[in-house]
Design a protein around this nucleic acid. Structure first.
Lengths: 232, 232
DNA sequence: GACCTCTCTCAGGCGGTTCACAGGAAACTC
DNA sequence: GAGTTTCCTGTGAACCGCCTGAGAGAGGTC
């Protein structure tokens, strides 16, 4: 992942900041704008590798922006952001080529995963593998498959996201707050007890197949995915 | 850790002083302000490497300050300080990017440890290792793991913090008052006997695995972590 | 509409953790 | 060596964090 440039287009400052900081932290170069016209000029100058585009913008909608961009020869894949109720009707036809869409509210970890998936499809090779293997567990991020020592395990979407987040930070304690912020949607305002519940679900499904418990509780701190063998 | 600049933002003079002096003592360059507007101007001029930001400020709350800073292109990671009862509801979304949060009251040693952890994550390399090895004991601060001559030891949170503080000041006598001030939360108003208790706990767990007692009692003064071999 | 899955909350229960206290051991003073 | 001070450590009580089962509610499928 060599200096991938991401253009974020969203009129809500909160979302824009949230995306900017967390994508920047994930290793991307980010620049963000608030409306369609700015998006077009920014894309022209910046030559982004991927564009995150809110479908509902104050000046022009996502279609117009897309059309404009394509007509200018800017073919960077677009990840559309849309409210949940706009989904089916308005989005169909949008996700042609390498494009994709996500409904708001989304989880930060999921956004990053999607971006990687899109880049993998479009830029081919060069981007890292879609298989994440740490310790005794292997995840195929394209197929959303999980294998523990070779046997497939069936996980719910949230269980999957939680496991992926834990596995992408092996041998490092993650606080419940961190987990909540990355795995759950950004407008989730429930208690952290839910993290405990899902850790419990994961353990119940995974531990019978592993030689040792993989998710460790660090009392008073958080949880940690342990991988004794091939570190990192 | 080459001259890391820390900006402290808190309206309570006590906390501000407490943080300033102890961070300065830990080797940081510190400058402190009391409100949000000052924080913004100070951050612009001073270009801090990390910001300690109280969530409840007289003029604007921490989120507004954050937003303002980010919109100005100031991307220094932020360590939020928040009262314990604000935790659950207001915290969501805070640990994004390199950011983190701590609840008041905190312990000074913990603040320093967190700052190092954040810098380690954001600045990558360049900052010191997360492994603290002195004499026969090795601590992995990412995993909160403790090894004595290779064998893992299970410590409670307070035991861990105490050991870390002792080990970060090897061959130097620490008074019980100092230990209390650094390891326990700043509003703790119990007796110093508790330090004796925890030293006792540590010795019971550590000494069976070491060749010689590592925590020495300096009668009438305090305690000292001894490391004959590789100094530091 | 009946079923099913998934998400999330809640509460009971367990065990670890924190802390105070007090009797005994050790060290220092004279 | 007696007395004093300081430190060590076992005991116990209150508390807190974590685990897990039970169940409500939303949404999807047939």
């Amino acid at each position: 992942m060599e200096n991938v440039k991401v253009l974020v287009v969203d009129d809500e400052p909160n979302i824009r900041d949230l995306l900017s900081t967390s994508l920047r932290f994930a290793g991307f170069s980010v620049y963000a704008v608030a409306n369609g016209t700015d998006a077009v000029t920014a894309a022209e100058k910046g030559q982004p590798d991927i564009i995150l585009l809110d479908v509902m913008l104050p000046d022009m909608n996502g279609f117009s922006v897309t059309k404009k961009l394509r007509s200018m020869g800017i073919n960077a894949p677009i990840l559309f952001l849309t409210a949940r109720d706009e989904t089916e009707d308005k989005i169909t036809g949008l996700t042609v080529g390498g494009d994709d869409y996500m409904t708001k509210p989304f989880s930060l970890d999921e956004i990053v995963a999607r971006i990687h998936a899109i880049l993998r499809r479009t830029k081919a090779a060069e981007v890292e593998e879609s298989v994440l293997e740490v310790g005794e567990i292997k995840i195929n991020q394209d197929a959303h498959d999980v294998f523990v020592n070779g046997t497939a395990v069936d996980l719910s979407p949230t269980e999957y996201k939680l496991l992926r987040f834990l596995m992408s930070n092996p041998n490092r304690v993650l606080t419940k707050a961190q987990i909540l912020d990355h795995v759950w949607e950004y407008d989730f305002n429930g208690e952290m007890g839910i993290v405990e519940s899902y850790v419990s679900y994961l353990r119940k499904k995974l531990d019978p197949l592993t030689t040792e418990p993989l998710i460790q509780t660090k009392r008073g701190v958080g949880y940690m995915y342990k991988s004794t063998k091939n570190g990192k």
